[in-house]
Write a protein that binds this DNA or RNA. Structure first.
Lengths: 213, 213
DNA sequence: AACTGTATAATTGTATACAATTATACATAT
DNA sequence: ATATGTATAATTGTATACAATTATACAGTT
C-alpha cells in the first residue's frame, strides 16, 4: 500500500489492484478472494468490495455471484482492440481539443512537452511514461467530452504496462516527443484538421511500437 | 424495486438508479444521499454504496468524498458525443461480427429481426425498443472484443431514453427494421465490408432520428 | 449587520457481525 | 471404485455500529 497517497481506502485499493492486474502480478484466470485482499492490504472487506465492483465494470475482473472473483486482465487481443478503437476516436478528441482548448490548457501542454524534451535527453523512461499519460489526459480533458475522456483515460490506464515496455529504446522516446510536438503545435494554432491528422499518425505509430510491427 | 428480478440487491439498486437517472427522474445537479436511497429502496447502505461506485465509473453521478453524490446525468451534448463515437466504432463491431459470428449467433439475430418485424406491424413500441437493444447487444457480443462490447453496451444503456422517445412514429420503426435487416443479411453472408457499411448508415440515421435532424 | 468560533447534526468512510450461498471433505451405499 | 448424501468450511451478500469528515445553526464579538 502506498502510504503517502491521500484519499479513501477504496481509492487506494482500486489503484493498487488495477496496477497489480495491469502489471501482470495477478494473472488471467487467477482467483482472488475478498478476505485475501483485505488481509494483504490491511483494510476491511468494505473498501475491497467497492473497488472490485469498479474493476468489474472496467472489465479487469469477473465477479461470479457467491463464488469467486476471477482476474480477466488485459490480453494481447485486448491491446490490439484498444489501439484499433483509439485510431478511430482519439483523432476526434484532438480535433475537439484544438477547438476548445483554453490558454490555461495550452500552457499546461507546452509545459508537458518541455518536460518531455528534458527527460528524453536524460533518457529517464519512468518520467516519460508518466508524461506521455499526462499529455494525452490533458487533451482528453480539453476535448470537452465526458464520454471521450472516460473511454480514452481508461484505455491509457489499461495500456500502461504495454506502453512502459515499448519505451525501452531512446530512439522511440525521441519519436514520441516529435509526434507530441506536432500535435501540440496544431492545437496551439487552433488547427483542428491538423491536430486530428497528427494524433492519428501518433496513435498508429504507438500501436506499431507496442505491437512490434 | 422490481420484485421479480433475480440477483443481488446491489444489481437491483444499480439497475434502478441507472434507470432513474437516464429516464430523468433524478435530474442533473440533484443531490442524493445514501440514507435517502437506502430508505427508498428498502435496503442497507452497503449495496447502495457499491451501486454508486459503479454509476460513478459510468459517469452518471459524481461522488464528492465526505460530501455528497451529485447526479451528472446524460446531457444532450453527451448524446451527440455518443453518436459521434458510435459512428466511428460501431461499424468496426459489425465488421468483426461478420467475421466471427457462429451459427448460433446468426440464429439469434434472425429471431430478433423476425420478432422485430412482428412488433413493427403491431406498432408495439415498448417491445421494439427492447429488441433494438438486443439486436445491437448480440452484434457487440459477436464482435469478440470485450472492449467494444463494454463501451457500446454502456452507450446503448445511456441512450435508452433518447431511443425510446425517437421510436414515436411507426414510419421510423419501419426504417429501423429495414436497416437491421440489411445489417443482418450482410453478417449472415459473412460480408464484413457490407456489414460495416450498413451499420454506419444505420447509426447515422439513428442519430438524425434522435437529434431530429 | 457582519464575522467568527463552537456545538450539533448530517453525511460519508470503515469495520465488523451475521446471513445466504457455494465448495469441500468424508462417510456410506451400491 | 463410483456415486450420493450430509456435515463442515469457505466465500460472498447484507445489515449495522462506529469513526471521520463536512455542513449547519447559533451565540457571541466587533
Amino acid at each position: 500500500m502506498n502510504d503517502e497517497f491521500q484519499g479513501s481506502l477504496r481509492e487506494k485499493v482500486f489503484a493498487q489492484l488495477e496496477e497489480d492486474i495491469i502489471s501482470g502480478k495477478y494473472k488471467e484466470g487467477q482467483k482472488l478472494t475478498e478476505n485475501m485482499l483485505s488481509e494483504q492490504l490491511k483494510v476491511s472487506r468494505t473498501p475491497v468490495r467497492e473497488a472490485i465492483r469498479q474493476l468489474e465494470l472496467e472489465g479487469l475482473v469477473e465477479a461470479i455471484p457467491n463464488k469467486a472473483i476471477i482476474v480477466t486482465g488485459i490480453t494481447s487481443q485486448d491491446i490490439e482492440d484498444i489501439y484499433e478503437i483509439r485510431i478511430s476516436i482519439e483523432g476526434l478528441a484532438a480535433r475537439r481539443a484544438a477547438k476548445n482548448a483554453t490558454d490555461e490548457i495550452l500552457e499546461k501542454l507546452r509545459e508537458l512537452v518541455d518536460l518531455q524534451e528534458f527527460y528524453t535527453n536524460r533518457k529517464d523512461m519512468d518520467h516519460l511514461v508518466k508524461l506521455d499519460g499526462d499529455f494525452h489526459e490533458t487533451i482528453f480533458k480539453a476535448s470537452g467530452s465526458k464520454t471521450l475522456r472516460n473511454i480514452l483515460s481508461t484505455f491509457h490506464h489499461n495500456l500502461k504496462k504495454a506502453r512502459s515496455d515499448s519505451f525501452g529504446k531512446p530512439a522511440r522516446a525521441k519519436a514520441v516527443l516529435e509526434e507530441h510536438k506536432a500535435i501540440f503545435e496544431a492545437i496551439e494554432a487552433r488547427d483542428s484538421i491538423r491536430a486530428e491528422h497528427y494524433m492519428l499518425i501518433h496513435v498508429k505509430n504507438a500501436r506499431n511500437r507496442v505491437l512490434g510491427k
